[in-house]
Simulated scan of single mutants.
Amino acid sequence: YAALDEAADRHGAVAVLLGHTRDDQAETVLLGLARGSGARSLAGMPAQKGRYRRPLLELDRAATRQACAAQSIPVWDDPHNCDPAYTRSRVRHEVLPVLEKHLGGGVVEALARTARLFRDDADALDQWASLAERDLRTGDGALDAVKLAELPPAVRRRVLRRAALRAGCPAGDLFARHLETIDLLVTGWRGQGPLHLPGGVEATRRCGTLVFRRQGD
């Protein structure tokens, strides 16, 4: 994506079109399930995010190949897609065919539909968390732990994640286990000491509030 961004900036591109299909979406949902991810991960890939567009997301892979063949458009296959060293490749060539065989056709379509439903739910919860965070912030930027405890867990974890990211946690390194530990500062407070999070961020409960700060600041 960094390479695509650089090329898009160089050419002044308004949009970048990606070739992900419904099959890719189904694989993404299965990978999220295997990792025990939350709703946002199970929502799969969005049809649009920023300058990126995925116009083929509602079509299966076979249909795109047939369309290319009908118009004499050459198809290039990335060799990584057939390399069993990659988890996605094993899902594509081993897991999904077994599911289709034993559960009947339509598994890919069902997984893609699941992604759409999860995306609607995740968008709603993210919006709720954004509004709640504004109400929970104290004058010094901390979060009111008492009010946090009153939120539904799904919303509360999103508020905690937003706060950790804002303090400097890298998004790719902040996992569910980190959020569960932070959540204990709200729901299972027994005088725990500071939590050390990715990116050198520290989370502390102090005087009924949660404080996120980068260590050394």
Rank of each mutant, 00 (worst) to 15 (best):
T64F: 02
L96V: 15
R51A: 10
L99H: 04
V75R: 12
A85I: 01
V75T: 15
L57N: 01
R65K: 06
A85T: 14
D83A: 11
T87G: 05
A47Y: 10
C82T: 15
A110Q: 15
G104V: 04
V107L: 06
Y52A: 13
R61A: 10
P97M: 03
A62L: 08
A85Y: 01
E58N: 05
I73P: 00
A62R: 09
E58T: 12
R61I: 03
R92A: 14
L56W: 12
P55E: 04
G105P: 10
H93E: 02
P55H: 08
R54D: 00
K49Q: 13
L57P: 01
H102E: 14
K49P: 00
A110K: 13
P74D: 08
C68N: 11
T87L: 15
D78Q: 10
P97C: 02
A62S: 09
H93I: 00
G104K: 07
V75M: 13
A67I: 09
G106P: 08
R54C: 06
R90N: 11
V91P: 14
D60P: 06
D83Q: 12
A67Q: 08
V91I: 15
E94T: 06
R51W: 07
L59N: 02
R90T: 12
H93K: 02
A110I: 06
A67T: 06
G50Q: 13
L59R: 02
V91W: 13
P97R: 05
R88Q: 14
V95S: 00
W76V: 09
E100V: 03
K49N: 12
L56V: 03
V98M: 09
R90Q: 15
S72R: 12
A112H: 07
P97E: 04
G105F: 04
K49I: 02
H102Y: 13
R88E: 13
Q71R: 09
D83C: 06
A70G: 07
A112I: 04
P79F: 12
R88C: 08
